[in-house]
Design a protein around this nucleic acid. Sequence first.
DNA 1: ATTGGACAAATAATCGATTATTGGTGCTAT
DNA 2: ATAGCACCAATAATCGATTATTTGTCCAAT
Lengths: 218, 218
Amino acid sequence: MLSEQVYAHLRDAIMRGVYAPGDALKPQDIAKEQGVSLAVVREALVRVVGEGLADRLPNRGFAVPAFSDRRWQEIAEARRTIEPVVLRMSIERGDVDWEARVRAAHHRLARTPAFVREEGEHYSSAWSEAHRVFHRTLLEGCGNPVLLETFDRMWTASELARRWAAQRDPGRDAIGEHRRLEEAALARDADTAAQVLARHLTQTAAALTGDARQADEP
Amino acid sequence: MLSEQVYAHLRDAIMRGVYAPGDALKPQDIAKEQGVSLAVVREALVRVVGEGLADRLPNRGFAVPAFSDRRWQEIAEARRTIEPVVLRMSIERGDVDWEARVRAAHHRLARTPAFVREEGEHYSSAWSEAHRVFHRTLLEGCGNPVLLETFDRMWTASELARRWAAQRDPGRDAIGEHRRLEEAALARDADTAAQVLARHLTQTAAALTGDARQADEP
DNA sequence: ATTGGACAAATAATCGATTATTGGTGCTAT
DNA sequence: ATAGCACCAATAATCGATTATTTGTCCAAT
């Protein structure tokens, strides 16, 4: 199914910043460069819109959403509201296999260099992915796919925000917080873990808007 | 934009039960009965899939998802996990306009007959809509569109579940719980409201699966 | 100078037809 | 009888071309 590939390509391009917020996503151009027909591109674009990675303006095409600071704050707040409760559930329910995966995910995250000079000011995609997997794995103990889908949606939006907001080094504190998260989770200390995560996400919100100066990353 | 109309039609048809879980959604048939081209139907179907109201099986078309009891439980649990915390936030933040809307939504819900003989065993669509609006309005005080989008997604899934699960009368207790929810919200009693909502949703979960006998609806 | 309107280019939306894949049907060889 | 294969009808996926809409530009009238 061609639309699947085009979809993956578009998603990746938008997340990598090939298109900036506000940029038009022209079906014809994309069709030509991908060597597929319009219908295929259109199908892919509709999916992208469904995921919140593009806006559709009737009779005027598709575009990368130009989110406001307010919007970024809302996304961060939503994560801050939901993720800690899911983390609690995860810690209460996670089995030994989950523990092992948390350990592995943290280990991988800690060993992956976050910042790559060659790519300019951006995080390495390897770190980005390890970061996502770590946060997701923490929640996976909850055993509820619906809650994890919710996490996935919010993470995607959050990452797009990060891409266009303060592109800063993860900082030492973030690394420390990831470690504390892992420790609290494995110690089944739901209170501490939820609190650390909430703080972690509050700092994300700050980092993504105005006062990026003194904030951590998620 | 034709796909918008076809999308709305499909969404409505699936929710109304025109298609049963497992039924194939054949682009050709739909295109013919709607008098539009395949591309349009296809676009609409992709959106429907994105909303979780259909599955897509590569090279084998679209179909209404045949969710398992387990899946319904997961959806109910996700609501039970998320909605109470959002309700707390809503009660802490809602302004007087929100209060007025809560009152109006509850008033409308209370005055709408839930059960319509003419339509067989189903809830009236008017009650369904009033019910949705009441629950949504309760949360709208939170002022966060991202959280409300999350509610919308889960509500949709939940409604589809209700449609194919125990199709029972709302029962007197549900009506009472709605009233208690309104009262607690307007009294700014977040603890009570969150607790009542959690219980309300727990009973939903029970109603949607096996032990529907002694459960309420949401 | 500015407003308004006719044109034209770009691009969005739609269509009708073509190609590819699947799943069944029935024949044949063991 | 049945395993395997060739065929075929149904339908999914894709394409190339057509139609509709928007947007910019140029000119005329005030």
